[in-house]
């Protein structure tokens, strides 16, 4: 996983609350292999008309191209646990989403893919939305260690779980960490067999 330290990029303002993972990637695209890239599916039905032509939508105009930061409203990524929602964001080039709150599973999935879910207060999210949408807006800089977001003269703080912060900063992979705990896991299983003999199903 690529570590996340600082990021400077154009930010796209998406002033919509409750963007669920069904909208981030409609289910009909989820049987595609990841190798083909999921970027084209991101917010597909909000970005396109049924005939495939592009709608007037914040991610569509040429000036949104290359934007690696999304600023949005509360409860981003609620709903389905589909990690494909994060794949769609990541493959589109998004490395950070700024919002007042996130769906829990979405936020956990983000960390696993090196995407930062930055939590700001509702007033700060409105300020950032406004600043990012100004014509000729300055680029947005996110400093994960300092937990700050800067657009021009506007500086706001964000929160993130401290464990997630470390994982992003160091690009740590959980599985390698866990495999080191193999003896502890074996010990737990051994003890648990006596404590809860009914917990393992009899498959015979």
């Amino acid at each position: 996983m690529i570590p996340f330290t600082t990021l400077t990029s154009k930010a796209t303002a998406l002033p919509i609350a409750n963007i669920d993972t069904d909208q981030l990637i409609p289910a009909r695209f989820m049987s595609q292999p990841r190798s083909a890239g999921y970027g084209a599916f991101l917010l597909h039905d909000l970005r396109h008309n049924p005939d495939g032509t592009r709608r007037d939508f914040p991610l569509n105009p040429p000036e949104a191209e290359g934007s690696a930061i999304l600023i949005t409203r509360r409860n981003f990524g609620c709903g389905s646990s589909r990690e494909a929602a994060v794949y769609a964001l990541a493959d589109h080039g998004i490395r950070a989403v700024i919002a007042p709150s996130f769906g829990d599973i979405f936020a956990a999935n983000s960390i696993k893919n090196g995407l930062l879910p930055a939590v700001v207060t509702e007033p700060d999210s409105e300020r950032l939305l406004e600043a990012a949408a100004l014509p000729g807006a300055r680029p947005t800089t996110i400093d994960l260690a300092a937990q700050t977001i800067t657009i021009g003269n506007l500086v706001v703080n964000f929160t993130i779980d401290r464990v997630w912060k470390t994982q992003l900063l160091e690009g740590l992979d959980d599985i390698d960490l866990t495999l080191r705990e193999a003896r502890l896991i074996e010990g737990f299983v051994e003890q648990d067999r006596a404590a809860r003999p009914w917990a393992v199903p009899d498959l015979s």
């Binding site: 646990s81 990690e83 599973i105 956990a108 696993k112 959980d174 599985i175």
Partner: peptide
């Protein structure tokens, strides 16, 4: 509780999950 694909892979390989 529901989990994402990376966590599914973690459970498959270790039968455990890190949680807060």
């Amino acid at each position: 509780f529901g989990i994402g694909a990376s966590e599914v892979a973690h459970v498959l390989m270790t039968q455990t999950l890190w949680q807060k």
